[in-house]
Design a protein around this nucleic acid. Structure first.
Length: 143
DNA sequence: GCCAACGTTGGC
DNA sequence: GCCAACGTTGGC
């Protein structure tokens, strides 16, 4: 059982959108970064826990919890998805709950305990990243 | 809207 | 296979 952080722009698809989906589940499509894809394809397993992060918005930060509901399969938004060699994959992500408050990026950056997270490192653009159990528990304790 | 960071593309 | 140009991400 692993822990992840997944970024999404709330204007495109936010935590409320996930909550309101049928089954509260949605395919996480559109990932076009190999590192992120490889994590989805090779490491994500059903039941893994996910921090849902809002990016590129007024208050970037962690807004909720989700889990992996289905392991990697071809991304239907990829033109090659129906061919023998799909390049991009999705996983299904299921809503768990919203946090009581947004734990903002600004706040996350203040904690030495989280200094190793790619999220708080300058220039990092990974949209999916692993979270250690220690980081996961520490962040939840901030709620 | 600006712009730094960085991944990708394509000419050579 | 190098690397400059270009496009995208995402905080501010």
């Amino acid at each position: 059982m692993r822990y992840w952080l997944m970024k999404s722009e709330p204007e495109a698809f936010g935590i409320d959108d996930l909550m309101n989906r049928p089954g509260q589940t949605e395919a996480w499509d559109g990932v076009r970064n190999y590192q992120a894809r490889n994590m989805m394809r090779d490491e994500m397993r059903v039941g893994d826990s996910v921090f849902f992060y809002h990016s590129n918005c007024a208050l970037p930060g962690i807004v909720g919890l989700a889990c992996i509901a289905r392991e990697a399969y071809p991304d239907s938004t990829d033109p090659a998805s129906a061919t023998a060699k799909p390049r991009w994959v999705v996983v299904d992500v299921q809503f768990v709950r919203k946090l009581a408050r947004t734990i903002s990026l600004t706040e996350l950056k203040t904690w030495p305990e989280l200094a190793d997270m790619p999220l708080v490192r300058r220039g990092n653009r990974l949209s999916i990243m692993p979270v250690t159990p220690g980081q996961w528990n520490f962040i939840l304790s901030l709620e």
